[in-house]
Design a protein around this nucleic acid. Structure first.
Lengths: 270, 270
DNA sequence: TTTAATACATATGTACGACATATGTATAGC
DNA sequence: GCTATACATATGTCGTACATATGTATTAAA
């Protein structure tokens, strides 16, 4: 096959020189970073990237639906004129994202993707920086305040008694570890009672993060909250439950805000 | 290498018989599906699955941070006693999820993952069923109602004037397509003004879905909403803006709820 | 001495061929 | 008609070779 490297190796330094020239010229007016942003996605694509895009376009144009089966790997490879290796890597991405599923000798089928399936692997507290962690906690507040709208639409006696049982258990214990446990249980139950499986999945996905933060509370008291909220929040789970039972939506939103606001000392003093 | 298939091919029918026997026995008391649920994840792991888990465990135990570089592919392969192909597929998953980045001759480094980066590829309206779409719209309502809490904390005159300009443009036009455009602009701006990049990313990710729904409004009037909200919602963007300017948080939440509630005819009659 | 051009080493990316494994299908035996 | 076998086939895994891009050392030139 034709060897580009051998052919162009003499040209490389010229290429570099021109790039440097470009950097120098654009650095003067400070527009380089902007133009670079626009340049990058044009030609920085690997072969697999192109294959992935091509495949996605193919799936869309042929109107593939969940359950439909894809052509064989070899057919795809031959049709696109690339090796099976490259095709497999592109398909591997789809598999990772849950867009397709594959089984031996059954071929590959379009899957019904679980929206938040992949994110659990990404949301490793170890990899997230403090700013993102704070934002996620803030997003939690936003969602749980808004959750009231759905809860007041769908609440029923069975649901309320489930919450009641958790709150009772919580009130009986004094161990910190149990308080944390029931705290998580209470809020998880709220998501469950929303009846919205997508929202519920979202919360389940975030649980490891909260676990991580709770676990580190004793070690680093400056992080995200100075204390376990139950110790100091002016609104308890019992208050929230009573409002769900006998109060109205507006009260619930305000109380939930206050209940979670202890996580944001800095925020509340802005 | 030892050939398992050749060795066990005579045993296969016996295996099948025993499975059938098990199915028969457990079908009587209906416990089969439960025990199967617990059985499946134990041994249905492919080699690459195991490698992925092992790698993840390795990254966690060694406390890898964003920016740290990983061992070479060959070293990993030799250390785990598998081929480079398998290692590469496991690494490809991490790359797909944005956990690592790789460049030629520079090796691979732990990346700072963008929490919602991968989801855009999954959130193809073509692949999502109606129930999930409805749930996503409901989640949007929940978030935007709760968004008020952050907006009232961080709002300033510059932000409000940005909204003002969008609303003015919206009020001047009569074309449906422009109304949709400014509708998206207005709500996008709210997310932006929240100052929470994670929440903003989440909204950006959902945009294609809203586009898709808006685009299909004329075709299928029964889907998700009977009309473009601006045509009939009792709360306009102007009302929301005025409340942001001069009203209070409680009013904003209620108005946002009403503003978005037109998407849920069925819901509101529950 | 500094700078630019070249050569080399190396890690990932791509390709090809081979076999393993699991599953669907057809065939033979009762 | 049912069961057990043999076969075909698509994905999964492996090993090797080479392409490509990038870092590093060396050399040439100013």
């Amino acid at each position: 096959m034709f060897n580009f490297q051998t052919f162009f190796k003499n040209v490389r330094h010229i290429y570099f020189s021109r790039i440097k020239c470009l950097i120098f010229a654009t650095a003067l007016n400070g527009s380089f970073s902007m133009s670079l942003e626009k340049l990058r996605p044009v030609e920085n694509l690997s072969q697999v990237d192109k294959i992935e895009m091509s495949l996605q376009e193919y799936l869309r144009s042929e109107n593939f639906q969940p359950g439909d089966s894809l052509p064989k790997e070899l057919e795809l490879a031959q049709a696109m004129g690339v090796s099976r290796t490259a095709i497999r890597e592109a398909l591997s991405r789809f598999r990772t994202l849950g867009i397709i599923e594959s089984r031996k000798n059954r071929g590959m089928v379009i899957a019904k993707p679980d929206v938040f399936n992949n994110m659990e692997r990404v949301l490793d507290p170890q990899l997230l920086d403090d700013e993102t962690m704070n934002e996620i906690f803030e997003m939690r507040l936003v969602i749980e305040v808004g959750l009231g709208d759905v809860l007041f639409l769908r609440k029923n006696d069975a649901d309320l008694s489930k919450l009641e049982r958790i709150v009772e258990k919580e009130e009986k214990t004094t161990k910190k570890i149990d308080i944390v446990k029931y705290d998580i249980e209470f809020h998880s139950m709220l998501y469950k009672l929303s009846g919205n499986k997508t929202i519920m999945r979202f919360q389940k996905m975030l649980l490891p993060i909260f676990d991580h933060v709770y676990a580190n509370l004793s070690k680093d008291t400056e992080a995200y909250t100075g204390n376990i909220p139950e110790d100091m929040s002016p609104v308890s789970h019992r208050d929230l439950l009573n409002t769900l039972k006998n109060g109205n939506l507006e009260q619930f939103r305000s109380q939930m805000r206050t209940h979670l606001m202890v996580y944001f000392k800095k925020l509340s003093t802005d």
